[in-house]
Design a binder for these strands. Structure first.
Lengths: 325, 325
DNA sequence: TTGAAAGCGCTAACAA
DNA sequence: TTGTTAGCGCTTTCAA
């Protein structure tokens, strides 16, 4: 390769290295003539600035990182697009990292990213990341999931409002035995959703029945199990709210298997995150979280912090898109 | 932050900087006692090596990049996992980049990655990337898709063999009006699949009928259109081979809409890449391309080249997993 | 408006 | 087995 350096360009243009630097970075004063000469030299030599050297000297990086729990799920990759688009618009590149919801992998990435001195990190925390997050020596913002008591900028969807709206909608349609299938209470988000469910019921005087609440881990198979738990309740639920699309896919399969027809025998409302749900059940009531916007806002907040434009902690709660049917 | 440097560690351990470097990098001889002292100092100071500086000086990067056409499709992200896992196992981090099948975005990434001096790139080319790929001054390997006439290491699935096997399977079950729905002939892969289709038919003396071949772009909507084209053929096809899962989803919807029952009225075989297909049609004959293995092998070949272990061009053709039903 | 000198933090090359 | 010196390519700082 024998890559050209700034000195080669300087020599060819008959200027000093720093002048080339000023042209490349559009910083400081450069005479129009000089600039033209330098730009010609750059073109002729096909000079590509060495970002590593400039990063070392200036202590400034134009690279961000995004830590996601899985990249094989389109909900997360939609967040990734939001992050990429906003970062790109502000002149940053994004290092996309897949933690697999594994705190060990996550820790490895923290180490690698710290060594690389990325400017900042957008993080979707995993269940075990609380303690190690507190040690990360790089500015970061937590997105979608919120770790309890972590003093960090936060961008997330309005889980309380979304759940409340859906349960109220079901109540409005006359359902009274409304079930809830969701993730175990790991993040604040999980608790706020369950709280909204209870609050909505309490507001109209419907008593809470613990047999109508089934919590578990994620995945289609788990959704099947949880739905079966609910269907065993007596009397059976006439409606159910489901915390994500994979659980919903499993739950719908379980209902079909048990001969329970949706929506005739059972109304289903689900948080919408993957479009496979459209294929299987196009007419559910859904709560779509603004994944793309979460990503964009996350980057905005992160860069504010990176640039030192804000000292106080920010907390953004974004509205969901509801499809009430 | 005031990050500690190698000199701080050296001072504390009472050694020189280079000795600390040797301990950190496990390179050269270091006395066990000295090593212990250095390691203690590292721990006490919470020293994190500056990868940027080390990269600049050693001209060695431990970072690879992966360019994907979309990250919201699990086929690509499965490749990404393969890349990540193999890279991680060999001590490399991976920069994941989403080109959106847009040569302009791709070019931007090439520029950013060149500036960052990544060690190598695993690329899934897009339709327009041929020319600019030839200019990339960094070692790379093309994966899954193959650009015509590009002198680069290549890892891909056996499109010819996969298609041949499926068509032969359908012929063996007695079908003779076998249709083909696929992508326009952009990459070598597209042509080899169509060739296999024709060869399989010709081998048993079934004449080719152009009305049974429908080519288009990707996407569920397009699959619908293409299937409708085929269903207009006279006589109608009794079987069809479909080039990817999104096309298949659309095609199945079109068949259902037209009152054509699968598999009773129409046998369907499809290339399998996203698991939404399982939900909709669990019992299709499928050709699953080894996405994960494509990613891993791509990294292996790339690192061979990065290390200069191989001069000649490599070309790996990986077997598919067939589910004949 | 331009440049000279210094040095970011690390490691290659050589020496001891 | 350890250290000294120099310098990777760039930008900061200060001077002209």
């Amino acid at each position: 390769m024998a890559a050209k350096t700034i000195k080669d360009v300087a020599a060819r243009a008959g200027v000093s290295a720093i002048t080339v630097s000023r042209v490349v970075n559009h910083s400081g004063y450069v005479n129009a003539d000089t600039r033209a000469r330098v730009e010609t030299a750059i073109r002729e030599l096909q000079y590509i600035p060495n970002g590593v050297a400039s990063m070392l000297r200036s202590r400034q990086s134009d690279t961000l990182a995004l830590l996601l729990p899985t990249i094989t799920n389109s909900f997360w990759t939609t967040i990734a697009r939001g992050v990429e688009d906003e970062a790109g618009a502000q002149g940053y590149s994004v290092f996309l990292c897949n933690t697999d919801d594994d705190p060990v992998k996550e820790a490895r990435y923290f180490a690698a990213l710290t060594r690389h001195r990325v400017a900042g990190i957008v993080i979707v925390p995993t269940a075990g990341s609380g303690p190690q997050l507190r040690q990360v020596p790089i500015p970061f913002v937590q997105v979608h999931r919120v770790v309890d008591g972590l003093e960090a900028d936060t961008v997330r969807a309005d889980g309380y409002g979304g759940t409340l709206a859906v349960v109220q909608h079901l109540l409005g349609k006359g359902f009274r035995r409304i079930g809830f299938i969701g993730r175990k209470l790991v993040f604040a988000q999980d608790r706020e959703r369950l709280a909204a469910y209870h609050d909505a019921l309490a507001a109209v005087g419907v008593p809470a029945d613990p047999h109508l609440v089934a919590l578990g881990t994620h995945g289609v198979a788990r959704g099947r199990d949880l739905m079966n738990e609910l269907l065993a309740a007596n009397p059976r639920p006439d409606a159910v709210v489901i915390g994500n699309s994979r659980l919903a896919l499993g739950a719908l399969a379980a209902a079909a298997h048990a001969g329970v027809r949706v929506p005739d025998d059972l109304a289903v409302a689900a948080f919408y995150d993957i479009n496979a749900l459209d294929e299987v059940a196009p007419h559910l009531t859904t709560v779509a979280q603004p994944a793309y916007e979460i990503g964009r806002q996350g980057v905005r907040r992160l860069l504010e912090r990176v640039r030192g434009e804000r000292a106080d902690r920010s907390e953004d709660v974004l509205e969901n898109r509801l499809h009430l049917r």
